[in-house]
Design a protein around this nucleic acid. Structure first.
Length: 737
DNA sequence: CTCCTTTGTCTTTTT
DNA sequence: GACAAAGGAG
């Protein structure tokens, strides 16, 4: 068993009462959580059944479950390890009837939400140009993250006409969801909170069940999740949250960094433990990360250190275009494998999914096995969604969206007008679309189309009957056969159709493996599982391939060699943040950069391209400010200082030099050499070589060396206790003793 | 009703 | 550049 350091051990043994673990990147937090669960079970005699461990992805939940099982041995099965969303689904499946929904509800993904919203905009006769479903859904999502109900939204909108319209749309949207017996992602949390708030017996039940609660990645929780946890932990208050404010990167998804920053305010008797020893990265990589993040102002602040060697320097390279950049990455991966590494030790991280295309192309050429995480979710692909829609129709016939999606897929001669007429009839009579088609002969507005609709209605009814006796996999086979869906694709004889067939086969395989893995496989169970998967969940640990993913997806992972590509101002940080008036946005991007850097164990490579195609437009970006924030002495490779300086060297100045958004705000020309945070003059430090100084964590020590490190000073101190440490002056905050 | 062409919008990140 | 929505012809 791997031994724990003092702080980790303290965190494991502090079992009663609220506990905040501020765990820096690579400080072994997962180990602490799993060990803590094991400690509760083995040493404190806590029933595994009384432990809840919450994460954000299924992958993390699964890992935690296996690792707890390894530590505990027999008897850990009772631990409830799940994501926020699946936890809520499990609770709601049992009790949502208290809120007037049916327990067989469907979960809508982003596409479904859009479809539904489009219908609502249409039904309200609003101009779709003015009312964009994306914007509206974002507003609604934000409201739900903050637990603002449609009624409260309307109250808050008082006077503001535009907000009042949004409130009305929000109201209609919720009504439509309910009519379809569906919940969107945000509802899963919102409705669970509502349930627990309004039904004391249910709340009491779960409070007593979850006597010990642990929450991972706490910095990413939004207000709704915060309240949910607060409710669940309300009785026993044995709440342990683990997080790192420097890795908060989901503000756009509603994450509220205050949840972690103010934990001690919410729980005044909370114990706070900092895990500051990094076991993952080499010294240079860690210092690069520390150097970058020190430019942020809103932090709890910590001193992440490592006992490891400095290791290799960070590599930086700028290329003419994205192709050369990708080529370089491919060669780098190949070289590392030739030296005896595995493909899986290599990860390429980028800011936007769109960047993966060029990389993919070059990796194929180089014969490198790779896997792209993210992009279009497998379950969001057309053919997969179609299949799922058939299954959903059987499972929840109140879900109009599902039926409307596949009523004419494959083509059955049922067009838009017929569909609209069925919907009208359904609305007039207050019945579901499914019930409307089963009595299509009564719909006066439909004449010729009726026979075709009848045919479909009978088919659907047949499937529903069959589902009662058939296994899930045979049901899906039946759907494929009877609809001729795959057959039709096969007839196309195109590469695209073939991949679609492959996807359907893959879905079928997933059905089969679900059946095999479950004691009691049900259609609802399968659909639920499918609707809550994240892209990252599909990452296998044993297969040997290089991985390509966004910086967001990379959180929680680690690799020997990390490539951060597209390090360009305008791309990363994105121009949205640069042009924004809100300074916290750039800080969020910087945290994202910090996350990226700290994924690397042995070697970090950063690359940029001078020229890049973005949305069909050629952009000329300067090197990312973040690259310049890495202390110079840690970097190998030429880093251009600024846009203007590089321009002088570049005689073939391009005609179209900046994308339009740059013309108004020439930010690329303005970044200066100095930083507001770094210390420029050694005399400003207040101590010198030979002085005794005090450090908040390490205690007293003697300054050995003060070296200039880019824009900051690197101070080497031999502490009385922990020994020799190197640190940056600007955030080590050393005081003369 | 279906197929084809044209037009417009988009993206930063996701459970 | 990619994809969806809209518009027009058969």
């Amino acid at each position: 068993m791997i031994s724990m350091n003092d702080m980790q051990q303290q965190a494991v043994e502090h079992t009663e009462g609220p506990l905040l673990i501020l765990a820096g990147a690579g400080s072994g937090k997962t180990r602490v959580i799993t060990r803590r669960a094991a400690y509760l079970i083995n040493e404190c005699g806590v029933d595994a059944y009384n432990i809840l461990a919450i994460t954000f992805t299924n992958k993390a939940a699964g890992e935690m479950k296996t690792r707890i099982a390894e530590e505990v041995g027999f008897g850990s099965e009772g631990v409830w390890c799940a994501t926020f969303h699946s936890t809520c689904v499990r609770i709601l499946r049992r009790f949502i009837d208290r809120l007037g929904y049916d327990t067989g509800f469907t979960i809508y993904d982003t596409d479904d939400q859009k479809t539904l919203m489009k219908q609502i905009i249409k039904s309200m006769n609003l101009d779709p140009k003015q009312y964009k479903e994306r914007t509206l859904l974002n507003a609604i999502s934000k409201a739900k993250d903050e637990l603002i109900s449609p009624i409260e939204y309307r109250l808050k909108a008082q006077g503001d006409w535009s907000l009042k319209t949004t409130a009305e749309i929000y109201t209609k949207y919720q009504a439509a969801l309910k009519a379809n017996n569906a919940l969107d992602f945000d509802d899963l949390i919102f409705k669970t909170v509502e349930l627990l708030q309004d039904h004391a017996d249910v709340l009491r039940y779960y409070q007593d069940r979850f006597r010990y609660i642990m929450v991972d990645e706490y910095q990413d929780t939004n207000t709704a999740q915060f309240v949910l946890i607060k409710l669940l932990a309300g009785r026993h208050e044995n709440l342990c949250v683990v997080g790192d404010d420097d890795q908060s990167i989901y503000k756009f998804r509603g994450a509220n960094i205050r949840n972690i920053l103010d934990f001690e305010k919410t729980y005044p008797n909370a114990k706070v433990i900092r895990l500051e020893q990094n076991y993952r990265s080499s010294g240079n990589i860690l210092n690069a990360a520390n150097g970058v993040i020190s430019h942020n102002s809103m932090r709890k602040g910590k001193n992440l250190w490592t006992a490891k060697e400095d290791g290799e320097k960070i590599t930086f390279n700028q290329f003419d275009n994205a192709y050369e950049e990708a080529d370089f990455v491919a060669r780098g991966i190949k070289a590392s494998v030739r030296r005896g590494g595995s493909f899986m030790d290599n990860a390429v991280l980028y800011r936007t999914n769109a960047q993966s295309r060029v990389l993919e192309e070059k990796l194929i050429n180089a014969g490198i096995p790779y896997k792209i995480v993210g992009g279009v979710n497998f379950y969001a692909r057309r053919e997969v969604k179609d299949m799922i829609a058939y299954l959903t129709m059987i499972d929840n016939s109140l879900d109009d969206l599902a039926i409307r999606r596949i009523i004419n897929v494959p083509k059955r001669g049922i067009g838009q007008t017929s569909i609209d007429r069925v919907q009208e009839y359904a609305d007039e009579n207050g019945i579901s679309f499914y019930d409307a088609i089963s009595e299509c002969e009564n719909i006066s507005t439909i004449k010729r189309g009726a026979s075709k609709i009848r045919e479909f209605a009978d088919f659907a009814e047949g499937l529903k009957k069959a589902s009662e006796t058939m296994s899930l996999s045979s049901l899906m086979k039946e759907i494929i056969d009877k609809t001729g869906y795959v057959e039709e694709l096969r007839a196309e004889r195109t590469v695209e159709a073939d991949t679609r067939i492959e996807n359907i086969e893959e879905l079928y395989n997933k059905v089969v493996s679900y059946e095999e893995g479950e004691d009691e496989p049900t259609l609802s169970g399968f659909l639920q599982e499918v609707s809550l998967v994240a892209d990252i969940d599909s990452m296998e640990d044993d297969a040997d391939y290089a991985v390509l993913m966004t910086l967001h997806s990379a959180k929680g992972l680690e690799f020997d060699n990390v490539y951060m590509v597209g390090m360009e101002d305008g791309l990363f940080p994105s121009y949205m943040c640069i042009t924004s008036d809100d300074p916290t946005e750039i800080e969020e991007e910087r945290r994202l950069c910090y996350v990226g850097i700290t994924r690397a164990k042995k070697h970090l490579t950063m690359t940029a391209a001078k020229m890049r195609m973005v949305r069909g437009e050629t952009q000329y970006n300067g090197v990312s400010r973040f690259v310049n924030e890495v202390p110079k002495n840690l970097v190998e490779g030429f880093i251009p200082k600024s846009y203007s300086e590089r321009e002088k060297l570049n005689f073939n100045a391009p005609e179209k030099r900046e994308p339009s958004y740059l013309k108004s705000k020439p930010y690329a020309l303005t970044y200066s050499k100095g930083s507001d945070f770094g210390i420029k003059d050694a005399s400003a430090l207040g101590y010198d070589v030979g002085d005794r100084v005090i450090h908040t964590k390490f205690g007293e020590g003697v300054v050995e060396e003060i070296a200039e490190g880019g824009r900051d000073f690197e101070v080497t101190v031999t502490f009385d206790g922990p020994g020799r440490k190197k640190m940056f002056a600007s955030f080590a905050k050393l005081k003369k003793a």
